[in-house]
Design a protein around this nucleic acid. Structure first.
Lengths: 209, 209
DNA sequence: GTCTATACGTGGATAGAC
DNA sequence: GTCTATCCACGTATAGAC
């Protein structure tokens, strides 16, 4: 303690790491609320209750913030969404439950999907960020594939196409339903589509042996 | 002819309508090349070889240009893509041909998909533009539904789900495959997904009677 | 390490000459 | 109707005081 203000609950002298975290969180809030275009470095610092100058000793550039945002898991947490799904139903019922669990998370936070879309679009334009959407997509596919394989073992099922192919289709159809829903906000239609997809994907399973 | 320069091939005194067209076309070129963020009114006017001031007596604001862009059919022309598909194959073969025809158009012009995504994301944020993606999506669904019904009649098929539901799934799965491909640029995987989808959707058809 | 002030470019939009 | 010059707000980034 070299100063006399040791007892004050001052917010100064935060480490650069915690500042980075707060800036990332603040950026996400601003983007969800007002869109990525409104998330200037000034707006983000204001949201984080930091002076504007703080930005550039936490990030060398704004692109670095974008990269940090894409590295955090903005997307739905598959483990959380699928953790509660009962593992002993029929394949069709199982897949329906899976998709509905995921869908609830989407409808609970539409802004997250909007921001994710904006961020991915932006990254696809910047050569330095282009690999990030690819990585995120790959991670999603891997998680889905692993889940399908685990489920196949537990329910004593096998798939008539490679599990990776089925994962691709699951992810693609879900992503497409989200896009449609963001435009129309018609949740009923989205659910109908998901149910149909679940029934279709169930036809790609059969008892093992 | 009130001036002495009657013989010159001057580009002046264009009607506001043709200027609007040229600005919209120029905007699309700039966006495809450099992304929507780089498509400033200045850049667009330069691309259209017009002075910057021309912009604001063709459009009251930049939002008006966005609206004009979304009104033009940036998306794949379904009639053109599907016109060449042979109508006498099996349902699965027919659907494969359909999806492949569409997919060729996507891979032939990836930038169009990037711009479309950027434009839709932008419109979803602006209350005044929010209805445009909904309209475009609706138009796409209607066209797909009409096509499915026509195909059903010609091939003497019926669908085990409403044609509108099937159209939703076609559009959603396709849109999802595009998203994945934009991130990964893995055309082989995209085609595998599309073939699987075609086979699945074929199971939703049966001979009429 | 922290923050203020500022530099510098660019954005959309407009006023007013022609 | 057409175009030039300009306005003003805001973007990222940095210099330099504390």
């Amino acid at each position: 303690m070299t100063t006399a203000s040791a007892g004050k609950t001052t917010k100064k002298h935060l480490s650069a790491d915690v500042r980075r975290e707060r800036l990332v969180a603040a950026a996400l809030r601003v983007m969800k609320r007002d869109g990525i275009a409104a998330a200037s470095t000034r707006a983000i610092c204001a949201e984080a209750e930091m002076p504007h100058g703080a930005f550039h000793y936490c990030f060398r550039s704004k692109q670095e913030l974008y990269a940090a945002l894409l590295a955090t898991d903005i997307n739905i947490d598959l483990d959380a969404a699928w953790g509660a799904v009962a593992p002993d139903a029929t394949p069709a019922g199982m897949l329906r439950a899976l998709l509905h669990a995921y869908w609830e998370a989407v409808e609970a936070d539409p802004e997250a999907q909007l921001v994710l879309g904006e961020l991915v679009n932006l990254a696809l334009r910047e050569p330095e960020l282009h690999e990030l959407p690819a990585w995120e997509h790959r991670a999603y596919l891997d998680k889905t594939t692993a889940y399908l394989e685990r489920f196949g073992q537990e329910a004593d099922l096998e798939y008539t196409v490679p599990a990776a192919d089925l994962a691709q289709m699951l992810v693609a159809s879900f992503s497409g339903v989200i896009s449609a829903w963001l435009a129309t906000r018609d949740g009923e239609t989205a659910r109908v589509s998901l149910d149909h997809f679940a029934d279709l994907f169930a036809t790609l399973t059969r008892p093992r042996g």
